[in-house]
Simulated scan of single mutants.
Amino acid sequence: MEIKIVKTTTPKEKPAANALGFGKYFTDHMFVMDYSVEKGWHDARIIPYGPFEFEPSCMVFHYGQSIFEGLKAYKGADGGVLLYRPYENMKRMNRSNDRLCIPQIDEDFAVDAIRQLVLLDKDWIPEGEGTSLYIRPFVFGTDNALGVHPSHTYKFIVILSPVGSYYAGGLSPVKIWVESEYVRAVRGGIGAAKTAGNYAASLKAQEVAEKKGYSQVLWLDGVEQKYVEEVGAMNIFFKIGGEVVTPVLNGSILGGITRDSVIEVLRGSGYKVTERKISIDEVHEAYKNGKLEEVFGTGTAAVISPVGELCYKGEKMVINNNEIGEVSQMLYDTITGMQKGAIEDKYNFTYKI
Rank of each mutant, 00 (worst) to 15 (best):
V303L: 06
Y49W: 08
A113F: 10
F26S: 03
R92Y: 10
R136T: 02
V307C: 12
T195K: 15
F140H: 05
F109D: 06
P137Q: 01
K14Y: 06
I324Q: 08
L117S: 02
G299K: 01
K288L: 15
L133S: 06
G308P: 04
P150Y: 00
K7M: 07
G141P: 02
G255K: 11
V163G: 01
E285Q: 15
V174W: 09
G64D: 02
M234K: 09
K288D: 07
Y63D: 05
K194I: 13
D78F: 09
F349D: 09
G251V: 04
Y351W: 13
Y154A: 03
K39G: 03
P162R: 04
Q329S: 14
I125S: 01
A110I: 02
F349H: 06
V178C: 01
E210G: 06
R259Q: 04
V262P: 02
F22S: 01
Y84W: 04
D108E: 15
L100A: 06
A196I: 10
V327F: 05
S328F: 07
F61N: 06
T9N: 14
F238A: 11
G40K: 09
L220I: 11
V183K: 10
D123W: 14
Y347W: 07
E13N: 14
P247Q: 13
G314P: 01
V318H: 00
V262S: 08
A192Q: 12
E207D: 14
E2S: 15
H284Y: 15
P11Q: 14
S202Y: 09
V217T: 02
Y134N: 02
A196W: 11
Y49F: 15
Y351T: 05
M317L: 13
E285K: 15
T274R: 03
L171W: 10
L310M: 05
E230I: 08
N289V: 10
C58E: 11
K122I: 09
P103L: 00
S57T: 12
G241M: 07
G64F: 04
K194R: 09
G255D: 10
K288A: 11
R187N: 12
E13M: 13
A17N: 06
V283P: 12
A17P: 08
M30E: 10
I114P: 07
M338Y: 00
A44S: 09
E243M: 14
E53H: 06
S279P: 07
L331F: 15
E230H: 07
Q216C: 01
D260E: 11
I3V: 15
A205M: 03
V186M: 13
K313S: 00
I253H: 11
N289H: 12
L71F: 12
G170E: 08
V139Q: 06
R99H: 03
F54T: 02
I159P: 06
R136P: 02
G169P: 08
L254M: 06
